[in-house]
Design a binder for these strands. Sequence first.
DNA 1: CCGATATCTGTACAGGTATGCAGATATCTA
DNA 2: TAGATATCTGCATACCTGTACAGATATCGG
Lengths: 122, 122
Amino acid sequence: MPVDECEVKKVDAGRVAAIRGLIDAADATRLAELFKLLGDPTRARILYALLEAGEMCVCDIGETVEIPESTASHALRLLRTAGIVRNRRDGRMVHYSLDDAHVRMLLDLSLQHLRHDQGSGQ
Amino acid sequence: MPVDECEVKKVDAGRVAAIRGLIDAADATRLAELFKLLGDPTRARILYALLEAGEMCVCDIGETVEIPESTASHALRLLRTAGIVRNRRDGRMVHYSLDDAHVRMLLDLSLQHLRHDQGSGQ
DNA sequence: CCGATATCTGTACAGGTATGCAGATATCTA
DNA sequence: TAGATATCTGCATACCTGTACAGATATCGG
């Protein structure tokens, strides 16, 4: 058998190894978790609403996104646990707002993506 | 508090209506679909690999991400359908690369987020 | 045309998860 | 303290989706 150790016909084994080292699976998984949180229509609507409004109570969020408040609460908990939003208690109301500069930039960037062109890149 | 038309105890009905008009549900859903595609560890690893490598064939992608090539092919199809990656046929091999400037920026931004230089911006 | 290589597709299964109702908890007002 | 308001949590369910095996398709070398 030729040059390779045993089996495969790798096109560019060196590059494969190099790229593999740049982003390990754990990092990619963490990044995916972040995007996954933004990848739900309900949570996305909540986040874009907060991006515009700055701060909203659960009840107004539910009204804005047109979902029951319990659903909003569930969604907000996930976002808060991930450090994407923060909450501020004011009496019996809890106000939520974005709490991550990078996420805010991601949301802005994605809005540009939406408003610019949707189908074809350049 | 001004009296509402009928039912609820809305805290700020005007703001709710205003925010609701800024991003409608359809837009948010489309944005969520984009993030959802980035929100899978396998697809994320593929995208970050392409971000670094520029262009890779399916076989090297599978090797880099350590998945069967059929899994890579499935993932790449979703990404291609969404306009996130493009493919270039070269003989019996197909080379994939990123095909969306905004997505490339999203990936870069998320890498910054990962590297945790948070605190800039507001 | 034939065999080999590279990629794609059909399909089935497993695991995850978004959702909302009902009830629990916290806070305010009187 | 009692009652009302705002939010949270437990749970059940239905839906979605990532995965990979096996086979189909496309392309190349000769």
